[in-house]
């Protein structure tokens, strides 16, 4: 078994028009910038993929990574909890112009919906959002005297995630708080593609330290020294005109 992919273009080649794509990261931490940029490169060359539904906590920042994907016109719908950031100009303009759809989900509900998708649980009840605008139209039930809102699983065709160490079997570790949605999104997609900072031999990750077991991963591509969205934005970078 060898899930290693040898370049970024191959890694994103299977993503088609209209697919749902989960993208890891909380703000810039954990954002798979190189995989996202490879997807933008493909769109610029072929016109595909487009009309994507993207699942992420945020809506991108500046003009790189997820913001650049949105700016390129590849995203028709965003499912996220917090589409604001220090510099959310790309999403904000498209949203206010009615050119991109938004499904706003409380952050913990977003995480649990993704986890449920990966775990084969079609729906669950949560106290979050009960009595608020975000619970409108959703079934409510009472358990032990408290009211809970029914939420449904969230699944994807593809997940793009950044991890730290990976092996050819797909076992992964993450770096500090860059873990965030990664382990959940890896579970919830038919195809999970991971960029790792270092590819190691099987056994190179202590089994006690594996965070995502390889069963949840379909492809691993090595990207040494990945860029941080925050560094790109501080340099006022714009993709595809990033100087690297």
């Amino acid at each position: 078994m060898d899930k290693t992919l040898h370049d970024l273009a191959t890694a994103v080649a299977g993503i088609e028009d209209g697919m749902t794509v989960m993208i890891g990261g909380f703000g810039g931490s954990g954002a798979p910038i190189e995989l996202i940029h490879a997807l933008i490169d493909r769109y610029r060359e072929t016109g595909h993929p487009k009309n994507l539904t993207v699942v992420n906590n945020n809506a991108g920042n500046g003009h790189v990574g997820l913001a650049a994907l949105i700016e390129a016109g590849m995203v028709s719908k965003l499912i996220c909890s917090f589409p604001r950031s220090a510099d959310p100009v790309v999403f904000t303009e498209l949203y206010l112009a009615g050119k991109i759809e938004l499904e706003l989900v409380p952050q913990g509900t977003l995480a649990e919906r993704i986890r449920a998708g990966g775990a084969g649980i079609p729906a669950f009840y949560t106290p979050t959002s009960y009595g608020t605008d975000l619970a409108q139209g959703k079934p409510v039930a009472e358990f032990e005297g408290r009211s809970y809102v029914q939420e449904r699983w969230l699944k994807a065709d593809y997940t793009l995630v950044k991890a730290h160490l990976g092996d050819r079997l797909g076992n992964l570790t993450y770096r500090m708080a860059a873990r965030n949605f990664g382990p959940l999104m890896c579970m919830a997609a038919a195809n999970t593609i991971v960029q790792v900072s270092r590819l190691v031999e099987p056994g190179g990750i202590d089994p006690e330290a594996v965070v995502t077991p390889g069963i949840f991963v379909q492809g691993v591509v090595e990207v040494p020294n990945p860029t941080q969205e925050e560094d790109l934005n501080r340099a006022k970078a714009v993709y595809p005109e990033v100087s690297q």
């Binding site: 909890s81 917090f82 589409p83 904000t92 938004l102 706003l104 952050q107 913990g108 608020t132």
Partner: peptide, 20 residues
Amino acid sequence: WSTGPRGVPAVGGAMDLVHG
């Protein structure tokens, strides 16, 4: 979390934090 229908809505973890 929201001052009304104008602009871009954003909720983050606010609705989760008030429970539990």
